[in-house]
Structure formats: structure tokens, C-alpha cells
Simulated assay, not measured.
Amino acid sequence: MPSYIVTCKDDATPEQIAAAKQHAKDQGGTIGHEYDLIKGFQVTFPEGSVQALASHEHVKDVEADQEVRIQ
């Protein structure tokens, strides 16, 4: 299953972040890593299911989780 990094809005409260995570679970996602430095988390979703999460009221951005390299 594809993996995504979900960033919540800057002013999201811990309760709102929890609501976004629950929404991801309700849509068939599995929460992986939870980040401390940013208001966000990693989630895996079945193909084509991430659009519902991207429109959640407390979600700022959803992007594909991918390897980053410094050259």
C-alpha cells in the first residue's frame, strides 16, 4: 500500500490532530510514525483512498512518502 506524510494545519490542537488520525483510520488507513517536530503523521492507504483525507478540515497537506537524498 502507498505511504503518505500528512501535515496538519499549524494551528491544529492535539484533539484536532487526533481527529485527523481517526479520519485516516476510518478511511482504511494505517497510522505509522507520528512526528513531534511537525504536526503530522505517516499513514498507509489502499490505492486511491487518500483524497478523502486531503480534504479533512484539519489537514494542511498530504504528500507521497518517499526517500530524500542530499547530493
Results as ranks from 00 to 15, higher is better:
Q71L: 03
Q71G: 01
R69A: 13
T13D: 10
G48S: 06
K21N: 05
E47T: 09
Q16E: 08
D65L: 11
V50W: 05
A64R: 05
T30R: 13
I70D: 02
G48E: 03
S55W: 05
V43F: 09
V59F: 01
K39F: 13
I5D: 07
P14C: 01
T44S: 14
E15L: 10
E15T: 02
T30Q: 14
K21Y: 08
G28I: 00
F45I: 00
L37T: 08
I38F: 15
E67W: 14
V59I: 11
H23W: 07
Q51W: 01
G40C: 01
T7W: 05
Q27M: 15
V50Y: 06
V62S: 00
D61P: 09
Q42W: 07
D11S: 12
V43R: 01
V6P: 11
V43Q: 04
E34C: 12
G29T: 06
Q22K: 14
E15A: 10
H23D: 05
F45A: 01
E47S: 15
S49M: 04
A18W: 09
P2F: 14
E67C: 01
Q51G: 08
D10C: 10
T44F: 07
H58M: 00
M1D: 08
S3A: 15
E57Y: 12
V6A: 10
D11M: 13
E63L: 07
E67N: 10
K21F: 04
Y35S: 11
A19M: 02
G48T: 08
Y35N: 03
A64E: 09
H56D: 14
D26Q: 14
Y35W: 08
P46Q: 04
E47F: 13
V6E: 10
F41N: 04
G28V: 07
P14N: 10
H56K: 03
G40V: 04
A19R: 06
D65E: 06
T7R: 11
S55H: 12
S49I: 06
V50S: 12
Y35L: 14
C8Q: 08
D61A: 15
H33D: 11
R69M: 05
K25G: 13
G28P: 01
Q16T: 04
G32S: 12
V68R: 00
H33S: 08
E47L: 12
E34M: 11
A54H: 07
I31Q: 02
S49R: 13
A12P: 05
P46H: 01
D36A: 15
D26V: 08
D36C: 11
T30D: 08
G28L: 06
A18T: 00
K9H: 12
V62Q: 02
E15D: 04
Y4H: 11
H58I: 00
T44Q: 14
